[in-house]
Write a protein that binds this DNA or RNA. Structure first.
Lengths: 217, 217
DNA sequence: TTGCAAAATCTTGTATACAAGTTATAGATA
DNA sequence: TATCTATAACTTGTATACAAGATTTTGCAA
């Protein structure tokens, strides 16, 4: 017996880390038996997953884990790129010592995470925290949550892309460069770095070639 | 007997235009009788309203129309401000004749709307279309929808602010200036105009003094 | 074997009875 | 009258039976 909140978080997590692959059927009856709960509260969970695009609901047919929507990925990257440029440039002029320390501490943890065996999970979480901290320091935690709310497609895209090769070192070094250009008030450099950092190699065909069956047609 | 979709749209509309005032109780049983539908599908509607912050749900107590959250208003204004600056500057360099005509046509309709008796409703809709068109022309309709999704508080704030005085003329003239500076590629002017246009007189105490009981504490 | 049709078995959608918690009310007591 | 208590009447939350539609399976016929 699990609570609705637990079930929601569990399913979200399993969808985001691709344990539940795009296209997987999520049957109400199967789930209600698995979690020992009736269909009514379970449908509440599915309704929320649907509104956040974790699943697609086909009336009278079934629910499936959504395929990765590259349009959403593109748009979220653009949104974050524009926002984070403005946020980092803003912080560049009004940065507190406390803020810088928090960011540096995070980067150290990223360094440690890379050295671990199963680095990816830890690193992804820390990377997330790094960007979230930027939003929070700038007084825009609300917008971070808003982005998170529409993050299913981008999040999965990102995870798959990281499988390509050991890119963690590269990402970490970009984090360092962003922090440096921020403290040095180098606006043009900030803009260029953030743009490239978020966009990564979005243009590459890696995903389409290797995970075509995860992608929305 | 109404469909879920109709009920959802109706309730959203009544909340946005303040027919349903913040704090109003939305009882499941009352609504289910009003719309001649059982509580189960009605709860689906309330769930969605809740996820989009139209209502607040107090378990075992009741549902009320949400109070206007000024933090959300501030953040959405900032988000739109940053985004629309970038979008309009982008369009400035790649504008099609078709796009300009669409915008000009909209502004003419705004001019006509102002002359009507009950101008506000029409004008608000056209103003919305103007900004939506900018997003669409730039290929960012996705982000327009995302903003719309988090728009309850800003939308109501805006409507109340417009009651202050006849501001429609001023807003229309700003739309014209934005369009002009866009076609003339005047980046600095665009930034300044958009910033001021969206922010309006957010800092004024008008709302707090006249609609304190609509505002979230 | 192939094709088609009907029925059985899936799926989610809806109505409703009941559970559990909160609030209001009525009544007794001081 | 004032106050406290118990009960009744509300609220939403959950379980479950049934409805309605989609799909699969089965069986018969060509």
């Amino acid at each position: 017996m699990s609570t609705k909140k637990d079930i929601l978080n569990l399913l979200k997590h399993e969808i985001l880390n691709l344990t539940l692959k795009p296209g997987t059927i999520l049957s109400e009856t199967v789930l209600s038996e698995r979690f020992q709960i009736s269909r009514t509260p379970l449908r509440d969970v599915l309704k929320q997953l649907s509104l956040e695009s974790y699943i697609d609901v086909y009336p009278k047919k079934g629910n499936i884990v959504s395929y990765i929507d590259l349009e959403s990925v593109e748009q979220i990257i653009y949104l974050r790129s524009v926002l984070e440029k403005d946020i980092i440039n803003g912080l560049s002029g009004s940065l507190t010592l406390k803020g810088v320390l928090e960011l540096k501490k995070n980067l150290e943890e990223q360094r440690n995470a890379i050295l671990q065996e199963h680095a990816l999970e830890q690193f992804l979480a820390l990377d997330d925290t790094f960007h979230k901290t930027l939003f929070t320091l700038a007084g825009h935690e609300y917008l971070w949550k808003l982005i998170k709310f529409s993050n299913v497609h981008y999040e999965r895209y990102r995870r798959l892309h990281m499988l390509k090769q050991e890119k963690l070192e590269k990402i970490l070094s970009e984090h360092h460069m962003i922090l440096d250009s921020m403290t040095n008030h180098e606006k043009d450099k900030i803009d260029e770095l953030v743009q490239h950092h978020l966009r990564e190699d979005m243009n590459s065909l890696y995903l389409l070639e290797n995970f075509a069956d995860y992608i929305k047609a």
